[in-house]
Each structure stands twice: as C-alpha cells, then as structure tokens.
C-alpha cells in the first residue's frame, strides 16, 4: 500500500513564543516500490515529514497513512498501537552512527530485529546477513562499534535497520560526511535494496544522486510540496529558486544547448546516455 499524506500540518511548540510551523498542508502519495527523493532547503520540513511516516510525530492536522496504519491528528482515527508501523518502516536518521550503543557490532545490529520479536539466534543470523549486505565481513562481528571508522560505523547503523527487513526504507542524508567512494557504495547499497522490492525514500541535498537513483522527486519548500515530478523534467527547469543545485550532468547539457547544441534531456540519465546522445547528434550532422 502506498504512503499518503493528506493536508498535513505540523507546528512545533504550539502556543508559545517559540512556535514554529514546520508543515503547512502537505499532500503527497509515494507509490510502493518507488525510489523517491525528497529535496529542499534546510528547515523546509523534510525531516518532520519523514518522522511522521514512522509515527515519531503525529500531525497537528490532517492524516498520514502508511500501509494499513493511520497516523491522524484526530486521536480517534489513529490506528491503535501505531508504533507497530516502525516494524515496517526503517528510518535511518542523519549521522546514524551516533545511535550505536552495544558492546559488539553484531549485538547492535541484532537489536532492532530482537525488539520486533525475533529470537536471539534468529536476530543474530539476520544481523550477520545485513552486515554482509552492507559490505562488512565476519571479522567485524565481534568488534566494538566504537573502534570502527566513521564510514564503517555508519554501515553498521544502516545494517541495524536493514536487519529487520522493512518494506519501506527512509534514509536521511546517508552520504553526508562520506568520501566519494564511500558515498557511491552507500548509494549502490540502497539501489540494491530498492531493486529487491523495498520502497526507498531518500532525503538529500545532492542532486547528482537524485538524478542518478531516484525515479521521483518531491521538492519541499516552506512546509509544502511545491513540485513533484521525475528528476529529468525537474532538473531541466530553473530550480535555483528552491535553493537546489542543477546536477553536473544537466548543467553540462544546459551549457551545450546555450552554445547551439540542443539535446533531449528526457533521454539523458547518466554519462553513458549523454555520450550516446552526443554521438547520435554528431552522426546526424555528418
């Protein structure tokens, strides 16, 4: 079942001097099995939205439906034991390495599956699988998570979410602070998870990643969804007004068009397709 937000509002610290409206009427649908990117400037309300999917926050108005769970402002409409939605939605916070606490890596990764009802041995088994999936071999299992490097810690934390096989995976800025190689591996991992049938929702500031991996983009500004489209269409428009940066590939294409070499942006998704397009065009001219 898809995720839907209908007319969702959220206000932090209501009726105090620190009142702050984070969401101002969000309407959206995220289809099952999609790879959706949520982009927008800092403080636009992305994190608030993401936390509602996981029932960490409840809307002040409107309702959020995730699978069969209803997270509504009206308490009577809310699904009982709403927190159970967390077994289906895996939420990876920004800098998830700060949530590690167990004395060994495997115990930390097995923590969530155990909380969601698996037995000790089953949970450990899932933990080992998840660790292999994120690319950490057996030698890491018994080590303390605190002696690992930053990138490794993050992988452990993400394995801790993948281990309970959520059918919706929400990741907030997973590549922040990683080196390019680490970031690439991280994204390839999410791509793999997506290919296996999981709905992936990605919050990011990196438009190159959005172009490369996402099949849909939601632009959030001032607590509202201002654009919802596929990345190719969006990036060919003027997106600077939302403080978004045009992906490198598209600024290249835009530069070429300006100099009298127009290309069809709908066909360009990566370097290969760009090269093919250019070659085809040159072929025409010859």
């Amino acid at each position: 079942m898809p995720i839907t937000f209908s007319n969702v509002f959220y206000t932090y610290n209501p009726k105090t001097p620190l009142e702050n409206a984070a969401l101002n009427g969000v309407d959206l649908t995220i289809e099952d099995g999609s790879f959706t990117a949520i982009v927008g400037r800092t403080g636009s309300g992305k994190s608030t939205m993401v936390q509602m999917i996981n029932a960490l926050l409840s809307p002040s108005q409107g309702e959020v439906v995730v699978n069969e769970f209803i997270n509504a402002a009206d308490k009577k409409k809310r699904t009982k034991k709403l927190y159970k939605v967390r077994g289906q939605v895996g939420l990876v916070f920004q800098f998830p390495e700060y949530q590690l606490f167990a004395d060994t890596v495997e115990k930390d990764v097995a923590f969530a599956p155990k909380n969601f009802g698996l037995k000790e041995e089953e949970a450990l088994e899932e933990a080992h699988k998840a660790l292999r999936e994120v690319g950490l071999d057996e030698s890491f299992d018994k080590r303390s998570p605190f002696e690992l490097s930053g990138g490794e810690k993050r992988r452990v934390a993400i394995a801790g979410i993948l281990a309970f096989h959520p059918n919706i995976l929400v990741v907030d800025e997973p590549t922040a602070g990683l080196d390019p190689r680490g970031a690439f591996q991280m994204m390839e991992l999410f791509e793999k998870v997506h290919k296996a049938g999981t709905t992936v929702i990605l919050v990011t500031h990196d438009m190159n990643i959005v172009l490369r991996y996402a099949d849909r983009v939601l632009v959030v500004d001032n607590g509202k969804i201002v654009r919802s489209s596929d990345p190719e269409t969006l990036f060919f428009e003027d997106i600077e007004k939302y403080s978004l940066e045009t992906p490198l590939l598209y600024s290249f294409v835009k530069g070429l068009s300006k100099r009298g070499f127009p290309l069809d942006p709908g066909k360009i998704h990566d370097v290969d397709s760009l090269a093919a397009e250019i070659a085809a065009k040159k072929g025409d001219k010859r």
Partner: peptide, 8 residues
C-alpha cells in the same frame, strides 16, 4: 527517536 525507530 532513532532508538524508537529500532523498536525500543
């Protein structure tokens, strides 16, 4: 919040 997402 992050531990609650892990089922705590």
């Amino acid at each position: 919040k992050s531990q609650e997402s892990r089922g705590v």
